[in-house]
Every structure is written in C-alpha cells, then in structure tokens.
Amino acid sequence: MAKLPPYTTTGEYIWHYIYRCICGLIFLFLILPILIVLPLSFNVEPYFSFTTGMLNLDPEAFSMRWYKDILRNGMAMPDAAFSLAWLSDTWNNGQWIRAIRNSFFIGICATLLSTALGTLAAIGLSRSEMPYRRLIMSILISPMIVPLVITAAGMFYFYSQVHLSQTYLGVIMAHAVLGTPFVIITVTATLVGFDKSLVRASQSLGAGALTTFRKVQMPLIIPGVISGGLFAFITSFDEVVAVLFLASPEQRTIPRQMWSGIREQISPTILAVATLLVILSILLLTVLELLRRRSERLRGITNS
C-alpha cells in the first residue's frame, strides 16, 4: 500500500478509506458470483441455495454427488460396480462426458485453424507494404463485433445450403472464425514491439526467409501466438450461440449442455461443471500470465 503524502488533510484520509471500501465492494461484485458456485456445488440437496446444514458446516450437508452425476448422467448402467465396463459406459454414453469430449475436440481443432491462419495474417498485416491494411483488418476483426445471433443465424442459413450444418466441420469453422480476431489482436500486439533490424541482420548473415522466420521471428512472437491461441480456445470452449444454431445433439458441447440444463432441469450438476470450468479458467489465466512475463523478458532483451 502506498503511504499517503504528509500534506493529506483529514477529509482526504476519510475519503481515501471510503474509496478503498467502494473498490473493495466492486471487487466483491466481480469475484463473488464466481466463488459462490464452489460451495453450492457440494450441496447434498438438489437446490441452488445454501441449506441450514451447509451454513452450520455440517459434513452431512456436503457431498460429491453432483460431481459423480457428471460421470453418470446418461449412462446405461450407472449403478454398476466400478470396472472397465463402467468406464467405457460413461465414456460412450455419459451426456456430460460426451459434451466434454466434443468441447475439447471442437475447441482444439478450431484453435489450430484460427491460430495458424491468424498468425500468418497478423504477420502480413504488420508489414508496411500491405495494401488496404485498415479495411482488411476491420473485416478480419469483425467476427468479434457482429452480434453472435446474426453470425449464427447467417451461418445456419448458409451452411444448411452447403450441407455443413449439423456437422463437426461446420461448428469448427464457425468457432475458428470467431476465434481469429483474438489471435490477430494478440499477435499484432507482439509484432508492434518487434525489432525489424533483427530480420535484416539474419538475412545479412545468409539466412533464407524460412530460416529467419523459424529461428528469429517465431521464438519472439511465440508468446503472443500462444496467448492468442488460448483466447481462441476459450472463445470456442465458451461459445454457445453458434452451437445452438448449427449443432445437432451429436455435437453438443459443455456450454450447450449447460444451456439446456438451465432451461430444462436446474440441477446442481451444472454448478459442479461450473466449478470445474472455473478451475480451468484459473489454469489458463496462470499460463497466460507466465507467457506475458516471458514475452516481456524476451522483448526486454531485444530492446536493450
């Protein structure tokens, strides 16, 4: 905490602490809704609220039943003893397990597609020779801006005509398009600080274009590429509107499953899934922070 300067008046002291309190409340507003799902997901009752037992910290009031339900929901024989057959049953029939598999499959494919195309485009766009730079950039960023309903409705209308709706490919393409703006923005941001003379130095030492890219450019922009990829992944992982319009039940993803869970039967299984997703986002956030620090360190070296 910064010390207040000696000329601070009493009124300013009071205001300073009131201000801190206000900020504290806003931070609570930001973080509390996310933290509140954690204890609720261990509720033994099928409700979305705290029971008296939970408030008294009665161990009886807590259970893992909703986490087990993630595995068991939709299984042919959920009550069978734990065995290989049980595992294959949940792997093949569990509704949530299918959604998780779909989410990862679609997310990873969409991320690879959008990261590869987006990185190339960002490199091209950062060159000063690029004609119509501003126009092309605004077209490439527009998937982030256009309301998702319009995007999804347009894709639903168009993809049905070319037999892409209700296929994995259709959903992957949709998610890849929605993810590219994030890749472009993050990679462009890394390229802004990129020292062009490094490329010239490499060329003057006899390296070809490909070697220069692989050995000089790539290691420097890789943190931006990875964080762009993470953004693209989380975009796909969290996307539900396009899935609602384009996917058949076969391609249900986690958010789609949560959507119908909220609309049809509100069961704390959703909260258990939500808890797992919060943990996932904490992991992603940590990776991103580490990447940012690495990028700063690398660029610190290039600038000196």
Binding site: L117, A121, E129, M130, I139, Y159, M173, T180
Partner: peptide, 28 residues
C-alpha cells in the same frame, strides 16, 4: 514484398469471407 505480405493475409481473408461474410450477406 507486397505480394508476399498479401499472400500471408489471403488464406485467412478467404476463410473469413467464405465462412462469415458471405453467410451474413446471404441472410441479409
């Protein structure tokens, strides 16, 4: 060098046009 820069952007531009811009225009 201009061709090189454009050729880096073209794949994504084509992809975005085909899977995003054209569908929206078709709907509109």
């Amino acid at each position: 060098s201009r061709v090189r820069a454009v050729s880096l952007v073209v794949p994504l531009l084509a992809f975005v046009l085909a899977s995003f811009v054209i569908p929206i225009f078709a709907l509109m």
